Amino acid sequence: MTGRRRGPTRAELEAARDRLLPDVLPGPDGPPLRVLFSGINPGLVSAFTGHHFARPGNRFWPALHASGFTPRLLAPSEQHLLPALGLGITNVAPRATARADELADDELVAGGRRLVELVHATTPAWLAVVGVVAYRTAFGAPKAVVGKQEATIGPTRVWVLPNPSGLNAHYTPSTLAAEFAALHACASGDLSD
């Protein structure tokens, strides 16, 4: 044995399809929720590990750090540290899939309604949906683009970020980090919003 940790087997990943990934949210005594990040849905690696954005090659955690949201690069297993920073994570759709394009539009629309309910319950300053195509479908906004949206959910402002999946070749790590940094500046009050 080499001592190297192996990744999950295909059978283990397939068995994870029925697992729900809990939201990462501050408790009642925690700091206010500045930004609630919403992925499209859990990938199979995330469902298997119980950690958001856990697939190797996903650039969420590096972008979060490079943009200034976290003081150091966190591993997915350290997601529990986010609430102390005023950050949370959820998903539009709860069903785990190997690829986001396995979701039906009605799942995204239903997930959008659930996300609106969660935002009303947690009142983050910002909702950041990670994936413009999913946002367009879930919120009935076919012309939405990456960046700050005109739409709000009560007092919560909405921002759309690019999908950080390594499969999204439209964004390099640095351009992805720049998009996260623009949100960070607004969420920190550094820019007029």
Rank of each mutant, 00 (worst) to 15 (best):
V35Y: 03
R136P: 02
V119Q: 02
T172R: 11
C186P: 00
A75K: 15
L73Y: 05
R99V: 14
S192M: 09
L108S: 03
P28W: 05
G27F: 12
D18E: 11
L127R: 03
T123E: 10
A125L: 14
H51S: 13
A151Y: 02
T152R: 15
L44E: 02
S188I: 03
A128N: 09
F180Q: 01
G131Y: 11
N163S: 13
R34E: 14
L167F: 08
L20K: 10
A138H: 07
D193N: 09
I153E: 03
P31F: 07
L108A: 06
A169K: 12
A15V: 02
I153M: 07
R136C: 07
G154L: 12
A138F: 07
G131M: 12
S67A: 15
N58A: 05
G27P: 04
T137K: 05
F48E: 01
L74T: 05
A151E: 10
A54K: 00
L115R: 00
G131I: 07
A121Y: 09
W126I: 09
L13P: 08
P173A: 08
P26V: 13
A187E: 02
A151P: 00
S174P: 00
A15F: 02
P62F: 12
A98E: 14
G30H: 07
P22R: 05
G131A: 14
F180H: 00
T156L: 06
A134M: 08
G50C: 03
P32W: 09
L13C: 10
R113I: 04
A96D: 05
D29E: 15
H120V: 13
V92R: 00
L161Q: 01
A177D: 02
A144Q: 06
Q149N: 03
P71H: 11
